[in-house]
Design a protein around this nucleic acid. Structure first.
Lengths: 189, 189
DNA sequence: GATTTAATATACCGATTGGTATATGATTTT
DNA sequence: AAAATCATATACCAATCGGTATATTAAATC
């Protein structure tokens, strides 16, 4: 692995395990087997390292959600696909997803909040677009895209969080079906 | 206000606004108008200050949930009361609740994680007891107390989080009713 | 009134923080 | 082959970190 990738990987592990603020630049470069100027050469700052990390790691998630959230006349199927992709990603990248979850409600003033909020916003946009497209067949959903998007996302993250704490397993088709069913029921009742 | 209370109040505001790690002891004592030995006299350490803060601030929430979660033959009503109390508390103590939310998924190694997890555990215990008591009238719930408890908590926190970000308003009886309805539907379907 | 205890301040500790000025090989471009 | 750029290291910076040894004042206890 080249130095740049090594730094990103080490940073992810450390940030995830101890938190962004608790990990010093010195620790990162030591574990990566390089020195500080190397890190600053690639990323400019600790914050720049974090931003690069989040953007590169989240790319595949955003692409997957974009595909899954396409609306083809069956909103229930789209939601199911979306939930599936989230669960798949959370299982494939648990360290990263855990880190993002832990920063969900981070204080807006913190230097890492901006990137995380941006990532969240992009996800919300994709989900909103899905609900917006479904309005043609479900008139009662009109004007509530954002609310649906954020509450679906909240529901998904809740279950992913529960899986991280060992309460449930995401590898469960029945669970997926129940979640979607529960969510749809919340919409149409 | 006496010095001790002042320190706790200042610490809460700073922790909530900038995050635990990002706030130095020096900043806290300056804003409180005292010096470091005073803080260490009362709380022993930065961590001790945080623990005291969490325990004192969460006491009223735990008491309210304990009362609301009592089971008197109508599980739907109990859940509704619980949700109500959570929403009331989150509105009364938004700064504190936001701080706790931001530490929900904090790395277990961090020095503040222990207290937060303990608080979460106490809440889960109360909710579990509620579902456990309801088993006599709802046999299909047997053996799932913990899962119900954590998912109800997750749902509540999701909505509280959404309100903090301006997406919804907790001051809405209809919302409360819908949440409980949605949750019950998830249980019995 | 004397003694103890609680509450506060001054001044300091070593360690660590994020970040950089400067230099040196290594690689690429011209 | 020369010049320029990239990638890395040594050695350092001021500032801040959490925490404390010591002293002093104020309040409570005897």
């Amino acid at each position: 692995m080249d130095t740049r990738q090594k730094l990103l990987q080490v940073a992810l592990n450390l940030f995830s395990r101890y938190g962004y603020d608790a990990v010093g630049v010195q620790t990162i470069v030591e574990e990566a087997g390089v020195t500080k100027p190397t890190l600053y050469h690639y990323f400019g700052s600790k914050q720049g390292l974090f931003e690069t990390l989040v953007k590169e790691k989240s790319q595949s998630l955003l692409e997957a959600i974009q595909l899954a959230s396409a609306y083809h006349g069956d909103i229930t199927k789209s939601i199911k696909d979306v939930v599936n992709e989230y669960f798949k990603y959370a299982q494939a990248q648990p360290t990263f997803y855990r880190m993002i979850l832990s920063l969900w409600f981070a204080p807006p003033s913190s230097e890492y909040s901006g990137v995380v909020q941006e990532l969240l916003l992009e996800q919300t946009r994709l989900l909103e677009a899905m609900f917006e497209a479904a309005v043609q067949n479900h008139g009662n959903m009109r004007g509530r895209h954002q609310q649906y998007a954020v509450s679906l996302k909240g529901m998904i993250d809740t279950y992913i969080g529960l899986s991280f704490q060992g309460h449930i397993q995401l590898n469960d088709n029945v669970l997926n079906h129940k979640i979607v069913h529960q969510f749809m029921h919340g919409i149409f009742s």
